[in-house]
Simulated scan of single mutants.
Amino acid sequence: MRRVLVTGASRGIGRAVATVFAENGDRVAVHYGRDADAAERTRARLPGTGHAVIAGDLGDPAAAQQVVETAIHALGGIDVLVNNAAVATSPATRHAVAEVDYAQWQQIWRQMTDVNLLGAVHVTYAVAKHLIDRGAPGSIVNIGSRGAFRGEPEFPAYAASKAALHAFGQSMAVALAPHGIAVSSVAPGFIGTERQEAKLASEAGDAVRAQSPFGRVGTPEEVAAAVRYLASSEAVWASGTVLDLNGASYLRT
């Protein structure tokens, strides 16, 4: 049994990740930023006992540290961290250069950078220090994005924050390997979460599905399966990797 902190686990990919660890017999801290009811629903669906729900705005460095400290107390320690929390792409966070004023541009860049990158940075630091102080091995998996490689012209801050998260993870893979801590990232393409249901059901849905030669989008469960593998002892030698999960919709060279 391992103790797992999953940030942004109230729904979507985070909920699927929390579920797959709980199904493996692990205890999970379900972190959320705003939606307490959704986070409680996630915990209620998890098999097993000893799970926790933890609130915190990861855009606030003090809150990020407190989330880790609360998870350590609730679970008795942390062995695995999954950095999933993010300010997502949406009509409210769209910031194409030609469409927003300078104040909007700054606000969205700061919001996405503070949560998507720095939130993960600060949580990683606190979990890594906890593992090092315990002299214990561990795993950290970051949820990045295909957008880090192909670009997101309507959401440049999102793409940049995810590219930086990939690079941060690789830096930490080198820094933490001497302590027995493996760090890796996954880069999903379009995933069919609850948040995307309306888009997939609209006229735009066919175009989204056509991005992949499989003719569909990915599922949260497929991302969760990859995260479970990367966090396993069998995947230590994959530390430093960025695993593409986009159904061949974008191929890196």
Rank of each mutant, 00 (worst) to 15 (best):
V227H: 05
P91R: 06
Q66L: 12
M1D: 11
A36S: 14
P220E: 07
P61D: 00
D35R: 08
E69D: 15
Q106T: 13
P188G: 11
M172K: 07
T70C: 12
V223S: 05
L230I: 03
V82Q: 04
R209H: 07
H166V: 10
D60V: 00
A38F: 02
V30R: 01
Q66P: 02
G192I: 10
M1L: 12
R252P: 11
A204M: 10
W109R: 08
G240D: 08
V82P: 02
P188V: 09
L243W: 07
H179Q: 14
A248G: 08
A22N: 07
T241A: 15
P61C: 00
E152K: 11
S233Q: 15
V123G: 03
I181W: 04
E69K: 14
G50P: 06
N84E: 10
Y102I: 15
A224G: 07
Q211S: 13
L81C: 05
W109E: 06
F149A: 14
A225L: 12
S10K: 05
F214D: 02
R228M: 08
A201L: 08
D133P: 09
G48Q: 07
V223W: 07
F21Y: 12
L230G: 02
A225N: 07
V123M: 04
T93E: 12
S249N: 11
P61G: 00
H95G: 10
L200A: 02
A18Y: 01
I108D: 04
V53S: 07
T219H: 12
I191N: 09
Q170M: 13
A198Y: 03
A16E: 06
A126V: 06
G48M: 08
D133Q: 15
L251D: 04
Y102C: 10
A44I: 01
E203P: 13
G56K: 00
G240I: 02
S171F: 06
V100M: 04
S145H: 10
A164F: 05
A159D: 10
G205K: 05
H179F: 15
E221D: 14
K129S: 14
P153C: 13
V97M: 14
L58H: 09
D60M: 07
L118E: 00
R41L: 09
P178C: 03
W237H: 15
I13N: 03
A63D: 09
A44K: 12
G189C: 10
A126T: 11
A74D: 14
A128I: 03
R228E: 11
A52M: 04
L131R: 06
G147P: 09
R41W: 01
T253L: 14
D26R: 01
G218I: 07
E203I: 00
A175W: 01
M112N: 09
T89K: 15
G180V: 05
E69S: 15
A36R: 15
V141Y: 00
N116M: 05
D60I: 07
P91S: 06
E23V: 08
I54G: 09
D101Y: 09
G169N: 01
P220L: 01
V87A: 13
A231C: 03
T7V: 03
S185M: 06
A207K: 12
Q170G: 04
G215A: 04
S232F: 03
G77I: 01
R11F: 00
A62T: 10
S90A: 15
F168W: 14
V67T: 03
V227S: 01
M112L: 13
V174Y: 08
E99C: 07
E194F: 03
A39C: 09
